[in-house]
């Protein structure tokens, strides 16, 4: 297959764009497209301070790499959750993230559940009803709380995550299957800041997962290849597989599913809710972060329950 831009040997075939690209052109195209969508969706400007949530996986490291290449002021945040499960998952992810940051002289914040809170995610999950069966829900709660805390405490303007199109399409698929209107109306590549919650952006939302894997490989970025042991066989992974089967038969199915959802919303397909679906926020008396409840936030309640 030939590169659509230079006629050289393509290294990736992006069937949804009817385009193959060689290594050099792909490594130029991807950051250019990222920049285009950062501007189109007004995610942030070069003057703003960005905090990138980095997990040690391909997407977040690729995002941090690209923002650095594009000249943005982007620091990283790694949350050490203490997941081991026989493969040293968290410590290996942290090692790779630190190596990445050190090699590029980038600033990395590390939140360590063990030293900062005296616990780890698997323990925390077991001790609470929320995470008794599977810690993923507790994990999401901890990450959201800590990302917002660091963004607020260190004065970041925006919080960027490495969600790619497959992540977004799988979430949309899940929410559509359940007609989960509250989530459907909120799903967007940019969530504006409000009442103490940092602005959240997803600059990679237009790229397929395989493009991000190709980018990290071509850039020589070492990332944690193993899936989170708790995410193996998860519903979101199953949805991704189903969507990939569709994509295989109908190239572009995933990108159309998500981008046409966004344009349908923009055109007013979704009516304004008749009841208030975004709750008013209050300040948690323990941690000072915004919460939808009237009293102590869920994160602090979870910590209290586990005796931390």
């Amino acid at each position: 297959m030939k590169c659509k831009k230079c006629g050289g040997k393509a290294v990736i075939n992006m069937r949804q764009h009817n385009m193959g690209l060689c290594k050099d052109d792909f490594l130029q195209w991807l950051p250019e497209q990222t920049q285009k969508f950062i501007e189109k969706y007004k995610m942030f400007t070069p003057d703003e301070k960005i905090l990138v949530a980095v997990s040690g996986g391909k997407d977040s490291l690729a995002l941090w790499d690209m923002l650095n290449i594009l000249g943005y002021k982007a620091d990283g945040l790694y949350i050490a959750l203490g997941i081991d499960e026989g493969i040293s998952y968290s410590s290996e992810s942290q090692r790779l993230t630190e190596e990445f940051a050190n090699a590029r002289d980038l600033n990395l914040h590390i939140v360590n559940m063990a030293s900062d809170y005296g616990t780890d995610l698997p323990t925390l999950a077991k001790e609470t009803r929320r995470g008794r069966d599977k810690p993923c829900s507790s994990c999401g709660l901890v990450k959201r709380h800590e990302m917002n805390r660091i963004a607020r405490d260190f004065g970041y303007d925006v919080l960027a995550t490495g969600h790619n199109l497959d992540d977004e399409a799988a979430t949309l698929f899940s929410n559509t299957l359940q007609w989960n209107g509250d989530y459907l109306i909120r799903q967007h590549p940019v969530l504006a800041e409000r009442d103490g919650l940092a602005r959240k952006v997803k600059p990679l939302f237009r790229f397929y997962e395989r493009e991000m894997a190709a980018y990290t490989l071509l850039r020589g970025i070492e990332y944690i290849y193993d899936e989170c042991p708790f995410a193996v066989g998860s519903t979101s992974t199953q949805y991704k597989e189903i969507l990939n089967q569709l994509e295989n038969e109908h190239p572009g199915a995933k990108i159309h599913f998500f981008t046409k959802f966004l344009s349908a919303k923009k055109k007013g397909l979704f009516a304004e809710p008749t009841t208030k679906i975004v709750p008013e926020l209050h300040i948690c008396p323990t941690c000072g972060q915004p919460t939808s409840g009237q009293d102590v936030c869920t994160f602090c309640r979870m910590m209290e329950k586990s005796g931390q």
Partner: peptide, 18 residues
């Protein structure tokens, strides 16, 4: 194996499925 779920590497170099 769905081509959408993988990328192919030959001698450390990324290659297309054709």
């Amino acid at each position: 194996i769905l081509p959408e779920s993988i990328i192919c590497v030959r001698d450390g170099e990324l290659v297309t499925e054709d």
